[in-house]
Design a protein around this nucleic acid. Structure first.
Lengths: 90, 90
DNA sequence: AGTAATTTGTTCGTATGTATC
DNA sequence: AGATACATACGAACAAATTAC
């Protein structure tokens, strides 16, 4: 795991996860994955020890940033970098 | 949106929402809906710009009035008018 | 061809912490 | 002290469509 959730931080976990995933994405970790597919919600729950709600909230942040799109029953995948909205706090 | 929450009123928001929903119910807005199903908590949060707690509190008032029953994972639905308790302030 | 597993969507229940009035 | 209100977080259960075997 590249980075872990700080269960004591004042920063909400869903924001922490969003930031972590942003880092992994920007590091190019998913560029080789077919369709730029991201880990499933279940996978992220397990990897980071978070509830599904929280994972989904984090994915919502990435969607807001325009980095990711989620398709029901298919999963989430990267969007082209040109279409990203600058995530606040950069 | 039939009516909005007054964020400045001295009347608590959850009571305002309860009154608004009572109005919508009495206007027959949900009579045609299958099972008399009411909007979900998430939907009400969005429509009225309230926190989930507040929405739930409002639904609790409608339950106290006997107008509505809530079933976990299913939602809330209307109860027969004969079973309503007169809401205070009528 | 068919069944099981996977995956996101949705829904309510509950609890905690913070802030305000 | 208590009521109101928001945000966060976990849990649990069901649905529906797709995917895997």
């Amino acid at each position: 795991m590249p980075q872990e959730i700080d269960h004591w931080s004042a920063v909400p976990k869903y924001r922490q996860l969003a930031a972590i995933l942003r880092g992994r994405i920007e590091a190019g970790e998913f560029d080789d994955v077919p369709d730029g597919k991201l880990p499933s919600e279940a996978s992220l729950m397990k990897d980071y020890g978070l509830a599904r709600n929280t994972v989904r909230q984090a994915m919502g942040v990435l969607r807001d940033w325009g980095m990711v799109e989620t398709v029901p029953l298919r999963g989430s995948r990267l969007r082209p970098r040109e279409q990203w909205d600058a995530p606040a706090g950069e």
